[in-house]
Each structure stands twice: as C-alpha cells, then as structure tokens.
Nucleic acid binder design. Structure first.
Lengths: 143, 143
DNA sequence: TATTATATTATAATCCTTATAATCTTAGTG
DNA sequence: CACTAAGATTATAAGGATTATAATATAATA
C-alpha cells in the first residue's frame, strides 16, 4: 500500500538533489509505515537492529531534510521531544491526556479561520495547526 | 485594569493552599501585565532587577504551580523554549514565521470541531489548541 | 513569637538537539 | 568501471532548556 508513497517520496528527494543512502531510506520507510507519531529516538531505536552503527545525529539530520522538503511535519506538544509525522492528507490530531495516544482526525481545513485572521491581523497566512485534547475510550472506562 | 485580575489570581492561589511569596507574586504580576508571551527566561531577566538573588528554578517552579491550577497556559511552538500565557479570555494566536511575533486572535471557539471529533473518535474531548502561521505586516514589506 | 510545612536558592544533573571534525559513500563523469 | 567531489554518516562534544537535590529561609497559622 505504502510502496507508491515511498517511491514518490524518494523521487522528491532525488529532485531536490538529496542523496539516497540506506539510513535515509530506512528512516523514510519507517515514517511512512508508522502507525504512530514517533520521536527521533523512537526511530533511532527501531532501526538500530538494521543499522547498529547509525548515529542519533543521522536520524535528526534526515528528519530535518525531510521537513525542509515538506515530506514530514514536526509536531511539538507539551512533552520534551518532538514527534514526526509523514505528510499525507490534511488531518488534525486528537490526543489522549491520560495515555498520550494520538489519533488522526480528518476535517475540512479551516480556511475560514485563516481568512478571518488574515483580515483582522494583516498577516499573510500560510497555514495553521490544531490539536484536540481529551480522554480516549480506553482511559474513559478504566476509571 | 489588571488590579482585579491579579487580586483574583492571588485568591485562587490561596484557596489552593499555595503560599504568596514576593517572588511568586512578582512572576504572576508580570504575566498578567505582559503584552507578550514570555519564556521562563524572559520572566527571569525581567525580574532580576527586583530580585537579584532569584533562581531560575523559582521561575519554573512557579510557572508549574500556575499551570497546574489553571492560571497559566504553556505554549510549545517549534522553538526551543516554552512560552507562558496568562489565561484570560479564549483566543488563538497568529505567529509570524519571519520574526516570531505573536498576536492574539479572537474567534468563536470551535465547538463544532470538538463535537465531531468526539463522535468520530470516541474520545471525551476537553479542549483544543490552534495556532495560525504567516508573515506579519512588517515582515511582508521588508520582504 | 514559635512552629512546621512549604518555598527559595544554588548547583548539579538530565534530556533533547545541534555542532564539529574525521571518515566514508553516493552519484555522476570520463 | 574507476575516479572524483560534494554530500552523508559517525562519534563525540557542546549547547540550551528544564528538572532534581539538599540546604537554607520564610509564610501562614496557632
């Protein structure tokens, strides 16, 4: 399913003059297949079996490259570390305040909000982010 | 103008069994009067004239106390450090991607989004956050 | 004023992320 | 297919924000 996505992503990297190294490919593949929204350390740990000598810096470097190209979004919540999300379709995140679970939530983009903000503030708006917080079904029942 | 707000905040602290120390009072007062959205270090620097011996830890400790009581909101953007916002009325933030300026933006709370998220995900939604990004008027002209 | 729990201070420690320099590798070119 | 130069990786150190610790000081209450 994700085969096309991976191939397309590799194409975009090549077009941007970014070299395809095994480590870079693995980080990208992991992000595309990830059901979760991993931290840099999550990725590092997940790949250390395949690449015992890979440096944490490599993970960070590649995440930065992916972000700059727009393949990946960096999410900064209250926690200590950033989370990284492969950019597929537009969606928001619903986050459980008890266990930290993150669920995708599709909703028509709030163009109206952006338009009003532009009018009121005089900013030239490029994008917005939104997160919704609450308690997931599991955490609701267990207490 | 902010006198009442400060007094009410102090009341809420007392009710929660939190002691009113000079440092704590000063941090709270600074937050209430702040037009900006300061970092912990901003607050520390702003008060070092009045409290030459105050520790950075004190600022962080007090911000945590305020946050736990709900007097203050902690904002985590992409930057290195958190920003702290005294909780007044509901509003969103518009952030300049060039110079980092943050402007308040009032908009009717997106209850509809929360309601839909609740229905679709089964979460019990408590709140949401949203930020809007763009280029401020100053940065638009200077290019 | 005496007491006790709580706050502050100073410092060290921790965690996440980035910088550096040396080594290695990719992706072209001849 | 070997050569080359720009770019990537590694290992390590350094940086910055935040938290933990232990000793000292102070607010609130009786």
């Amino acid at each position: 399913m994700h085969a096309n996505e991976l191939q397309e992503a590799v194409e975009r990297l090549k077009e941007s003059g970014v070299r395809i190294t095994p480590q870079r490919h693995a980080v990208l593949e992991f992000l595309i297949h990830a059901e979760t929204h991993p931290t840099a350390d999550d990725i590092y740990k997940a790949l250390e079996g395949k690449f015992p000598n890979m440096s944490v810096a490599t993970v960070y470097n590649n995440l930065r490259v992916f972000r700059e190209i727009g393949l990946v979004k960096e999410l900064t919540y209250g926690d200590a570390s950033s989370r990284f999300d492969y950019n597929t379709t537009k969606h928001y995140h619903v986050i459980c305040e008890s266990c930290g679970k993150i669920v995708d939530f599709h909703y028509p983009s709030l163009d109206e909000v952006e338009a009003l903000a532009e009018k009121v503030t005089g900013f030239e708006i490029s994008h917005h982010r939104m997160e919704i917080y609450g308690k997931c079904p599991d955490c609701k029942t267990t207490h």
